[in-house]
Structure formats: structure tokens, C-alpha cells
């Protein structure tokens, strides 16, 4: 089961080898009320303690595979299913210090049945979340 909030508590962690962290993982629930093919997701903006990372530089880890924006747009047969977690990989050398951080995300979701000028629409999440390990 998901935590209710878009940004999950569990899974918020540093990425890469200990002592040589190269990024931060922000785990999300599906940012949609229906499962969707990954090509309908146009990337995810992330802000960590006020530092902005565009959807053009973040990537998504889904089912053990890492998708950058171009790979996401090509992923017309990959599904992000309801109930499945995925993590946004934020390129931040050194990662974050253990402690409480302010995290904001905007998942850009294309819903083909919405008017063309509303595609994609950002699905927002914002919260305080805790990094446990350095």
C-alpha cells in the first residue's frame, strides 16, 4: 500500500556508494488516479531545500530501470501501474545530510482526453521528509 501523500516518507534517501553519493532518490506513489504508460509522463521537476532540478535533468527509477526524459518519452509500452512505487533520481553530488528536508515535486502528466493546452499538467507534492543515512 502507498502512503497517502505523493512524496513517500520511505525511500527518501541518498543515491550512490556510501562516501561518494551522487544524488538523492525521492520515492513517489503513482501521480495519477489510473495506471499509465510511462510515455504519458513528461518528466518530474524536483526542488530540494529550495534548490531546483528541472525534469530535463532528473530521471525516474521504475522497476529497476532508470529512464531519463528522452527514454521516458519513448517508453510507450512500459507501465507505471497503480500500487507501484517509482523514485525520482536527482543529480546532486554528495547527496543530502541526514535530517529533515523540504521537498517539492511536480510530475508532468499528459492526459490525452484533456484539452491540448492543458497537456501536460503538473501534479504537485510538497512536504518535509527525512533523510536517515548519510
Amino acid at each position: 500500500m502507498y502512503e497517502f501523500q505523493l512524496i513517500q516518507s520511505t525511500g527518501f534517501r541518498n543515491h550512490g556508494p556510501e562516501g561518494a553519493r551522487d544524488g538523492v532518490e525521492v520515492r513517489l506513489r503513482l501521480p495519477n488516479y489510473r495506471g499509465m504508460r510511462l510515455s504519458l509522463l513528461d518528466g518530474i521537476d524536483v526542488t530540494l531545500d529550495g534548490e531546483f532540478f528541472s525534469h530535463e535533468v532528473t530521471s525516474l527509477i521504475l522497476g529497476g530501470t532508470v529512464y531519463d526524459l528522452a527514454a521516458m518519452r519513448d517508453a510507450t509500452t512500459v507501465r507505471w501501474a497503480m500500487g507501484e512505487h517509482a523514485s525520482v533520481l536527482v543529480p546532486k553530488p554528495g547527496g543530502l545530510l541526514p535530517g529533515i528536508h523540504h521537498v517539492k515535486v511536480a510530475a508532468l502528466v499528459r492526459s490525452p482526453y484533456f484539452p491540448p493546452h492543458l497537456q501536460p499538467l503538473p501534479v504537485h507534492g510538497e512536504r518535509l521528509a527525512t533523510i536517515v543515512l548519510p
Binding site: L40, D42, T76
Partner: peptide, 9 residues
């Protein structure tokens, strides 16, 4: 169900 006509950009 959905017919995602804009599956591709």
C-alpha cells in the same frame, strides 16, 4: 478504459 491517442509526443 482509455484510448490514449497522444501516447507519443
Amino acid at each position: 478504459s482509455w484510448v490514449d491517442t497522444k501516447l507519443r509526443l
